[in-house]
Amino acid sequence: MNKKYDILVIDDEEVIINAINMIAKFNEYTTASAKNPTEALNLLNESTFNLIITDIMMPKMDGFQFLEILKQKKIKTPMIMTTGYSTLENAVKALNYGAIAFIPKPFTFEELTSVFKRGIEYSKISNKLFSRRISEDLLSIIPCPPKYYRLGFDSWMNEEFEGTVKIGVTDLFLNSIGSLGSIDLMSVDENIYQGNTALKIVDSNEYIHQVLSPISGKIVSVNQKILENINLLAKDPYFEGWIYKIIPFSLISETNNLTTCSLDI
């Protein structure tokens, strides 16, 4: 019997599962839950899911090992990772491992709802991409250009002349948000850190989506054109739609944490 759910919730704490279930139900998503990755793997054998949300720190098997098993089994269900041990390293690692979002605990109703919305949207996009009906839907995701580096599917960075680095948001992230409402940026001279929130995008339904920074540095300029016209972001996310120009603090060591875009095409 092959049942179909929207979301699979994995967490070793009952209260978290209940909270997540409650928020999902309020947003009219169907859910199934598991208290550990083994249980989750059994559920994945019986049913299909559009989205998985898993805790990272669990006894016996952690979220990363679980993700590794899913990769081996060629289960491509998008995954959101969450943890109470919300360090920058965990955020960067989660996105690098292929999670589509990292949400630190504790989260609010709104924060989780935003991530669910983006996750379900992402799931739809990837289903279309893998179902070979691309031409009919006229769906196209612009890949990140070679020589760029990206942090999961959140953000990208590209080294410029004179040691500055431009950073921006990936097309896949923008597409999973849907219609863009407004953008909330940091200002010049502020420092951003790899794995920390660099900007927030508010969609037309007032949900706030946080984009994690691919690299640490001091902001030297902000792209004013985006603030004037947010649609520029979706139109040309990798060139005209850059967000910040920064002076990186430790470019080389942090680049090692990123994925090169040269292999994407």
């Binding site: 704490e13 209260v15 978290i16 209940n18 909270a19 997540i20 409650m22 928020i23 943890t83 109470g84 041990y85 919300s86 630190p104 605990k105 504790p106 989260f107 609010t108 109703f109 989780l112």
Partner: peptide, 11 residues
């Protein structure tokens, strides 16, 4: 602490 806080914050 973050786990119980998650319960409080979400509810």
């Amino acid at each position: 602490i973050n786990n119980p806080l998650t319960g409080v914050l979400t509810y």
